[in-house]
């Protein structure tokens, strides 16, 4: 017979104030103004988004911001209907890598709108290369979820 052993429940709750730094502060300011800001590397010429303080490939310092396109193509997506810790609202979630036009890396965000609330609909409407565009939240507070999601361009 399996013996029941004691367990002790302990909740660790540690508030933490993360410094965003100058570049992410500016990126967040951009979101609040309805813009997606990136940085252009003077060396490899890649447009990187979100904006950053140096190029992760060339290590060139980046201090100029460029506004990038609010449309792009789906690279890949994942459909999940389970709520998880820190999840951005209620399931289902369709996380996706999106290549915004003119940029040199993939942007991680959500797909939504246009009936994308069942797996069948997502499978029918979203493929590699499907064109999507930003849908903004009405209340923008300077955070990642100011972008509500990307929806297919009809």
């Amino acid at each position: 017979m399996q013996k029941d052993y004691n367990t002790l429940e302990n909740i660790i709750r540690l508030p933490h104030k993360y410094a965003a730094g100058p570049i992410f502060t500016r990126f967040y300011d951009g979101l609040r103004a309805g813009k997606i800001l990136g940085s252009t590397c003077p060396n490899c010429k890649k447009v990187l988004v979100p904006a950053r303080s140096f190029c992760p490939q060339c290590h060139a310092n980046l201090d100029e911001f460029v506004e990038v396109a609010q449309e792009g193509e789906v690279v890949s997506w994942a459909y999940s209907d389970k709520e998880f810790f820190g999840s951005p609202g209620k399931p289902p979630f369709i996380t996706a890598l999106i290549r915004l036009d003119g940029t040199g890396c993939n942007f991680l965000h959500l797909l939504g709108g246009d009936g994308l609330n069942t797996l069948e609909n997502v499978q029918a409407k979203v493929k590699k290369g499907t064109r999507v565009k930003v849908v903004w939240n009405e209340d923008k507070i300077g955070r990642m979820l100011d972008i509500k999601y990307f929806e297919p361009v009809s």
Partner: peptide, 17 residues
């Protein structure tokens, strides 16, 4: 928490993509 944490969905989300 600035960018990626919202979208990771545990481990499976990343591996699905």
């Amino acid at each position: 928490p600035f960018y990626q944490r919202y979208f990771i969905a545990g481990a499976p989300g990343v591996f699905s993509m």
